[in-house]
Design a protein around this nucleic acid. Structure first.
Lengths: 121, 121
DNA sequence: TATTAGTACCTTGTATAACAAAGTACCTTG
DNA sequence: CAAGGTACTTTGTTATACAAGGTACTAATA
């Protein structure tokens, strides 16, 4: 029994791959220069990391709550005030660790690929 | 209000980074050679991708249900019978796509690092 | 033939990330 | 003051990972 086969959501693989990753790129962006949500969205999009509002805002709140970023309100000439986020000292430390984690994961996966995909094109 | 600061679970960053990724390495391993759960766990551990039983078994069930892998029971001389998993044709196709996704995510993140971490050590 | 240890597989409950969708509020312009 | 754009927020859903505990088969041994 239970021989049913469901279709595999290929369209979601990139999205699934990103789970839990986003804090790294987002911290990277904020760490480089103070900025606000819609601009972060643009930068992520430019880097081909598509993210939506409903993902980013809660993420920023989490980073704030964790003390990794801080924000100040800033006037805008084109609309309502903006929450300008900047990275904290503790955020920089975490960012370093995230980068190490990334390197490590990266080399783990790439070594697996090398090991098992040799000779494929 | 709400100025509390929670501690950031640094110990979990690697684990979080892996969310949604595992099907890629697991498919890679099974695609290379038929094998069974405890051996997959060993191979992942060797590659520094720590995973626990409670994660792997449901993942294998999902891959099976999706038709990406199949299994046959095989006798063992050292214990109970094993579910030997092998990749299916459809699994190979998904594996290719996952590899592309990985390359793409990889280069996206690395380009962000290059862009924003220039000059840091 | 119980008992024990080792191997293999499975399930349940919890936490949490990502997302879609909808909503609130501010600002400028006509 | 209505309309449109900008910015921020929230709610409900889906799905992954994990901890912890459980079931079951096999072989060795008392």
């Amino acid at each position: 029994m239970s021989e049913e086969t469901s279709t595999y959501r290929v369209e979601n693989t990139e999205s699934q791959m990103r789970k839990g990753f986003l804090e790294f790129p987002v911290l990277l962006i904020i760490g480089s220069k103070s900025t606000y949500a819609p601009d972060i969205l643009k930068q992520l999009k430019t880097a081909n990391l598509l993210v939506v509002e409903g993902t980013l805002y809660p993420l920023l709140s989490r980073l704030k709550r964790a003390g990794l970023v801080a924000y100040t309100w800033e006037e805008s000439k084109t609309g309502p005030p903006r929450k300008m986020y900047s990275i904290t000292k503790s955020g920089q430390e975490v960012l370093s660790k995230l980068e190490s984690s990334w390197e490590s994961l990266n080399s783990s996966v790439n070594s697996l690929i090398k090991k098992y995909e040799v000779g494929k094109k």
